[in-house]
């Protein structure tokens, strides 16, 4: 006798009791993740940027670190001059 194959999930089946609890847990977990992510979002107003403009926030505040970074960059990319000259990492410049 030929039987009709049943799909792996049938939407007409009644919802299992544990499933709603599972959804609730997933929703709560997502909410918690977003709440934790949200506390990291802070709008800095234009008049509050004194700290951001301070010398300590500059990426090039340490000349030695910049020189080392440049050395690593052009050694890796084989591009003499590092970022200071045009061209890519083909090693031909």
């Amino acid at each position: 006798m030929k039987t009709t194959p049943t799909p792996p999930f049938d939407s007409r089946q009644p919802t299992r009791p544990g499933r709603s609890l599972c959804r609730l847990c997933i929703g709560a977990a997502l909410l918690a993740v977003m709440a934790f992510a949200g506390v990291g979002c802070s709008g800095v107003q234009p008049w509050e940027r004194a700290t951001l403009t301070s010398y300590a926030m500059r990426a090039d505040r340490d000349p030695l670190a910049v020189a080392m970074g440049e050395h690593i960059y052009f050694s890796r990319e084989s591009s003499t001059g590092g970022r200071g000259v045009g061209g890519s990492g083909c090693g031909c410049n």
Binding site: R23, L31, A37, C41
Partner: peptide, 21 residues
Amino acid sequence: TFRGALPVLASGLLFVASTGT
């Protein structure tokens, strides 16, 4: 499975969008 979480996701996106500077 995630139907219940969709409003939470939407509100989260709105929150992130509202924190723009």
